[in-house]
């Protein structure tokens, strides 16, 4: 048990140790540089302060993730039905994939207001792309000769979608979910930081302004933990899906 934990976490622990030693050996002012131990202390002593922002951020991240994944899948299916639409949507999707969405947060904030819905929208747009791209390729990654089988049985377009293409896309959708979750918390936190709409990003911004660095870093540690946990959960899900579908 402990050995397994060490095997998976040795590198992270090493990093934290280096940080602690670094803080102890250099003489930076403790207001600007804090040690991991003091952050941990604040986390345990004032745990209740973090709960609401953490739930808020998680809620918006998952909500946006769901919205973005769904939109990506729907659009990928629409593309699947028509070559013309496929070309049209692919180019716009490519354009937007290459666009740094995070840079658009200021514009989105101007367009939709400094509100939580903008936060949701940012995460949704961010996670839309992996979903669209992976679902698009998944819908086309069919088992060998299955297309001919379906043609020989005179399968309708709808049956091809429901019985063949959609189940075939499930593993790729699982990848999209993993990639999307990797971003969701981070993007939510950046959006909250910029728009100060509540959640961990907001908490970070406010506590930074008060020079309460322990609390600010505590908030980001929580964000990291959430992000890592979500990522590992979706990785585990992806592994299971792969076993089932391949």
């Amino acid at each position: 048990m402990i050995l397994r934990f060490l095997k998976k976490s040795w590198a992270v622990i090493l990093l934290l140790l280096l940080w602690q030693i670094g803080v102890m050996t250099t003489n930076y002012n403790s207001i600007v540089v804090v040690s991991p131990l003091s952050v941990l202390q604040d986390l345990t002593m004032h745990a209740p302060v973090y709960i609401v922002p953490a739930l808020w951020t998680t809620g918006f991240a998952l909500g946006g993730l769901l919205l973005g994944m769904l939109a990506g899948l729907v659009l990928a299916v629409i593309c699947w039905t028509s070559k013309i639409l496929s070309g049209l949507l692919q180019s716009s999707a490519l354009l937007l994939t290459a666009t740094p969405i995070v840079c658009l947060i200021p514009i989105l904030a101007r367009l939709f207001g400094y509100q939580s819905r903008t936060e949701l929208l940012t995460v949704a747009i961010m996670t839309f792309f992996p979903s669209f791209v992976y679902a698009g390729s998944g819908l086309r990654r069919l088992p060998q000769r299955s297309q001919e089988l379906f043609a020989a049985l005179h399968a309708s377009r709808w049956k091809r979608l429901v019985l063949l293409a959609l189940p075939a896309a499930v593993p790729e959708l699982a990848v999209a979910l993993r990639v999307g979750t990797a971003y969701s918390i981070l993007v939510t936190v950046v959006a909250e930081f910029l728009m100060q709409t509540g959640g961990l990003g907001d908490m970070f911004a406010v506590t930074m302004q008060q020079f309460n660095l322990h609390r600010a870093l505590g908030a980001s540690v929580i964000a990291m933990a959430l992000s890592t946990a979500l990522y590992e959960a979706s990785s585990a899900l992806e592994k299971r899906v792969r076993l089932r579908f391949a």
Partner: peptide
């Protein structure tokens, strides 16, 4: 396994948290 987790954790570092620290260091 350890490097895998390190990569995930490092990627999970929020830019907004790291930014101020990097500016100082």
């Amino acid at each position: 396994p350890g490097l895998d987790r390190l990569a995930v954790v490092v990627n999970a570092l929020p830019a907004i948290a790291l930014g101020p620290v990097l500016i100082i260091t």
